[in-house]
Structure formats: structure tokens, C-alpha cells
Amino acid sequence: FDWSKWVVEGVDPKDLGRDIKTASGFSGFFEALFGSGSFMRKGQDISRDIEISLEEAFEGTTRILRTKDNRRLEVKIPRGAKTGSKVRIKGEGGTGVGGGLNGDLYLRMHVAKHPKFKLDGDNVKVTAPIDLYTAILGGEVEVDTLKGTLRLKIPPETQNDKTFRLKGQGMPKLNKPGVFSDLYVAVSVRLPQNLSREERLLFEELRDYRW
């Protein structure tokens, strides 16, 4: 057998021939190359995408998975998970080789778009409509948050798209119990519609007075 056709870095083909003479069959051959014992290798890690709602990301949730051998896995997704966050399930990846450990399964989170709230990094954004009179004279407006509703004080002469920061009213921070990000509220001034003749005259008087 011509061992020179097989290239093994750091091993002289002549030495291979001598080693094989003292080994029994193929098992001896592999022992000569790799040493005694089985060749062990950890199984491949596997990643899977999973979509959760913003409310689930805020509260934390549970997903039930079925394995290939029909086992039931209950996976807890922590509060504050965001797009790109991963949950590791140990030993549920690819099967190990030669008695090696199984790989791990990683669930990669994707937070679905919300019709009202928008994520901006760790913070949350929301738009609050206000009427023209509140924008001009000041007042209060009810604002939706992920925790519920609260009253936001609007100062006089608030401009359209003015943004208010509500500290600690955003998302819970991952792995930081009791710590929350901020909520940014942008006001959207709604103009009155279907004005009566008297209302239109009042606006015209105001215009003439101002100009």
C-alpha cells in the first residue's frame, strides 16, 4: 500500500507503515492516527425564529414546542425580550457524535409590529391626539401606555409633534427586574372640522386680530 498518497500533516508515511504493523485491523489504524478512545463531537447548535407580540415581550410569555421525538417542551420567554434576543434550550439541538453532547437550540425573537406603539431601541414611542383648543390653551390628555392609561399635562401653546418623555413608562429591561425604559409621547394636533358659520367668523376675527 502506498502511504505517500495520503497526506497527514506532521506524520511520516514510513512511520504510518510501522504503526499499522503493530495495530490490529482498522481500529489499530485509527488509534495510530487519533489515539485511543472514541472520536467525540458535540452536536450542531440550531437556531429558529419565533414571533411574539409587543404585549408578550412586555409581560413575558411561554411557548410550547414539540421535538422530533414528540416530546413537549415548555419554553419561557422573559420580560423585555426584543427583536434579536435569544433564548437557549440546552441539549435540544443536533445529536452528538461518538457519545458527544447534543447541541443547543436557540430561539431568536422577533417582536411583531404594533398598531399603536413603536419600539425605538429599549424605549417606546406613541402618538397622542389632542384638539386645537388644548394645544393653544393647555390642559390634560389621556395617554395609552403598555401599563395602562395615564393623564399627561399639556402646557399652553404646545406645537404639533411636540414630544414628551415619560420616564419609566416603556419596556422592562431584559434581565434587570424592576427597571423600565421610557415612553415618548408625540402629540398630534387635530384641527376642528365642519365649522359652523359663527365658529368660522370667530376664527376670522382671531386671524384679523393677530395679523
Rank of each mutant, 00 (worst) to 15 (best):
D144S: 06
D144M: 06
D144N: 12
D144T: 10
K147E: 08
G148V: 03
T149G: 03
T149W: 06
L150H: 07
R151H: 06
R151E: 14
R151M: 14
R151G: 01
L152W: 14
K153C: 07
K153W: 15
P155L: 10
P156R: 07
P156W: 12
P156T: 13
P156S: 09
E157I: 06
T158K: 08
N160A: 03
N160E: 07
D161H: 13
D161P: 00
K162V: 05
K162Q: 07
T163K: 08
T163F: 09
F164Q: 05
F164H: 03
R165S: 02
R165C: 01
R165K: 09
R165G: 00
L166H: 03
L166I: 13
K167Y: 04
K167P: 00
G168S: 10
G168V: 14
G168F: 15
G170K: 13
G170Q: 06
P172Y: 15
P172V: 11
K173Y: 08
K173I: 14
L174V: 15
L174S: 04
L174D: 13
L174M: 09
N175T: 06
N175Y: 15
N175A: 07
K176T: 06
P177R: 04
P177G: 02
G178A: 05
G178D: 11
V179Y: 13
S181A: 05
S181R: 02
S181Y: 00
S181K: 01
D182M: 00
D182S: 00
D182P: 00
Y184N: 03
V185Y: 13
A186V: 05
A186L: 06
V187H: 05
V187P: 02
R190E: 15
R190A: 03
R190N: 09
L191P: 12
P192F: 06
P192S: 04
P192D: 10
Q193D: 05
N194S: 05
N194R: 08
N194D: 11
N194P: 02
L195K: 09
